[in-house]
């Protein structure tokens, strides 16, 4: 059993994440980046590029991917996988949106930092 009432953690409003941009959820284990694509859909990844650990939240969001600010790896927002010739994965955290609020799956949070 979890220690709180709900397995879904309210991390903020969809409107608080800029379109084609991102915000960070600061967790004790590390940062989670919440991205919002041009069409308004939100995604969450561990904020750490599989390449050299760059903060993906600081990258440019385009389509359903983000380009890491350090060395331009492109990461798929849906899978966390590096695209193109690069290989690696940044763990995805499950999200759901309800009434304009973003909820993160608490049960899967720890796994993201595994």
């Amino acid at each position: 059993m979890t220690m709180h009432m709900n397995d879904w953690i309210d991390v903020g409003a969809v409107d608080d994440v800029p379109v084609r941009g991102s915000r960070i959820v600061r967790a004790p284990e590390g940062d989670i980046a919440i991205f919002k694509a041009a069409d308004g859909e939100v995604f969450a990844l561990r904020d750490k590029c599989p390449h050299k650990g760059g903060p993906l939240s600081q990258g440019i969001v385009h389509g359903r991917s983000v380009t890491c600010p350090l060395h331009n790896w492109i990461i798929d927002l849906e899978t966390g996988e590096a695209m193109g010739a690069d290989h690696g994965c940044s763990n995805v955290v499950a999200l759901k949106v309800q009434d304009g609020r973003i909820f993160m799956d608490a049960r899967r949070l720890a796994a993201a930092f595994a």
Partner: peptide, 17 residues
């Protein structure tokens, strides 16, 4: 301002399973 602040800071209790 949103650029410079986390959207949410989780405490240990929330984040723990």
């Amino acid at each position: 301002a949103y650029e410079f602040a986390p959207i949410r800071q989780l405490d240990l209790a929330e984040a723990a399973e």
